[in-house]
Simulated scan of single mutants.
Amino acid sequence: MFERDFNGERLREGRIYRGFTITDLADELEVSKQMISKYENGKATPTFEALMKMTNVLNFPKEYFYEKPVKVKVGSTYFRSLLSTGKKEREMQYDRVKYISIIRSMLEEYVEFPELDLPSFSEEELNDVEYVAKKLRNYWGLDDKPIKNIVRLLEKKGFVLAALNIKKRTIDAFGSNQEVNGKSYYTIVLGNKKSFYRRQFDVAHELGHKILHDNNLDLDDLSREEFKQIEQEANDFAAAFLLPKEGFIKDVSMHPNNLNYYKQLKKKWCVSIGAMVMRAYKLKVLSRGTYDYMQRMISKNGWRKQEPLDEIKLLKEPIAMVQAVELLIENDYIGKNEFLHKLSHDYGLSLHRAEVEELIGLEDGYLHQTIDEQPENIISLKQIRQINDKTS
């Protein structure tokens, strides 16, 4: 897939990936904005010196700028904080999730991942979020049981999950529909690290978007009110999915007005106290007056930022692609260099080792080639003195 012609579209992609405007990159390369535009539109080719600066500034291998990657069809991408997240910050993430899907597609040449496993829903059913959540629970055999680790659950059901260090603090998580080589994926990217319990809700929220909303919905065309509506629907789904109506009512009704009791429920249901109080109110277990009072107490206790148990329970990270890479490399199905070469040659995606490690969630330095250990010596050199005695 390596081509000799400079790929201006790839320059644009890499620039946006790193969060550079045309002006930013022009300043770094010490050229005009017009020249950057010419590079990106294929009307000019950078000199060798400009190319070297480009690779350093954007931190991509030089091959990256000459490749044509495999086609990835991108559907709707749902950001939980769309209203407070600028277009620039959102665009920075689009290619990250695209690259994750490409790596997943390559790994599937070697490894059997679970296929995406979702029931079908009629248009009429999708209007009833409570019913949709219950149907999905039954389909997956969850019944009224708590979901102890939704990250692992969704990986087992064929979703692609990744955890990235996203500098923009407003991006909690987002989900994106992707199609690579004719196969559809739904990738959920976990952003800034919250507590285990809040992450549970974030993931369930993105699952709700996948089920409830049109894969080809253009979010930029939605009004502020329409966007708020689909966000509320995803929130309602997450609450209903994590806290099934019958099972949760049975538990919460014992001491619905006691916030200390919700600490115990939090251990069982693995959902934040704030989400459980909201769910109890919507299920009419709490009156409006009691709900308002409990919300004031949550604020007074400082639980908006951190709740009890948040500092104890460790975050659960995605493991499916990490396991796949380690399985291949540790069993010598593919070497570390070969892995990166195949990604470049067959999929048109040359990335530095550290970049791939971050996208997949591998331990830092895992893909760096190590020098083979020297074999145990069977022979040794004779002492110089013995050699000299024989030759004298």
Rank of each mutant, 00 (worst) to 15 (best):
R4D: 11
N7F: 00
L11I: 02
L11Q: 03
G19T: 07
F20D: 01
T23E: 13
K33A: 03
K38I: 00
G42C: 11
A44Y: 07
A44F: 09
P46W: 07
T47Q: 11
T47G: 13
A50F: 00
A50N: 14
L51W: 02
L51P: 00
L58G: 09
F65W: 06
K68H: 08
K71R: 13
V72R: 08
V74Y: 05
T77H: 05
L82N: 05
T85G: 06
K88L: 10
M92T: 12
K98M: 06
I103F: 06
L107S: 04
E108P: 02
E112L: 00
E115P: 03
P119V: 08
S120R: 13
E123S: 14
E123A: 13
D128K: 03
V132A: 03
K135W: 04
Y139K: 02
L142G: 08
P146M: 05
I147S: 00
N149H: 10
R152M: 05
E155F: 01
E155V: 07
K157R: 15
F159M: 01
V160Q: 05
A162M: 02
L164N: 04
K168F: 13
R169S: 14
D172Q: 15
D172W: 11
F174D: 02
E179K: 15
K183H: 11
S184F: 08
Y185L: 05
T187K: 04
L190V: 02
L190E: 07
N192D: 08
K193R: 14
F196Y: 12
F196N: 01
Y197S: 06
V203E: 02
H205Y: 13
G208Q: 05
K210E: 09
H213G: 00
D214P: 00
D214L: 00
N215H: 09
N216L: 11
N216M: 11
L219Y: 04
D220L: 10
I230L: 14
E233I: 03
E233T: 08
A234H: 11
N235F: 06
D236P: 04
D236M: 13
F237A: 06
F237T: 09
L242R: 03
L243V: 01
P244F: 06
I249W: 03
D251W: 09
N257E: 14
N257W: 09
N257K: 15
N258D: 15
K263P: 05
K267N: 12
V271E: 05
A275D: 12
M276L: 07
R279L: 00
R279A: 00
G289Y: 11
Y291E: 03
K300S: 13
N301E: 13
G302V: 08
G302W: 03
G302S: 10
Q306N: 11
Q306T: 15
Q306D: 10
E307L: 02
L309P: 03
I312Q: 12
I312R: 07
I319E: 09
M321I: 04
A324L: 10
V325K: 05
I329K: 12
N337A: 07
L340E: 05
Y347V: 04
E357C: 05
I360T: 03
I360H: 10
G361Q: 09
G365M: 05
G365P: 01
L367F: 08
H368E: 15
E373C: 08
E373F: 10
P375C: 12
I379H: 10
L381N: 12
I384R: 12
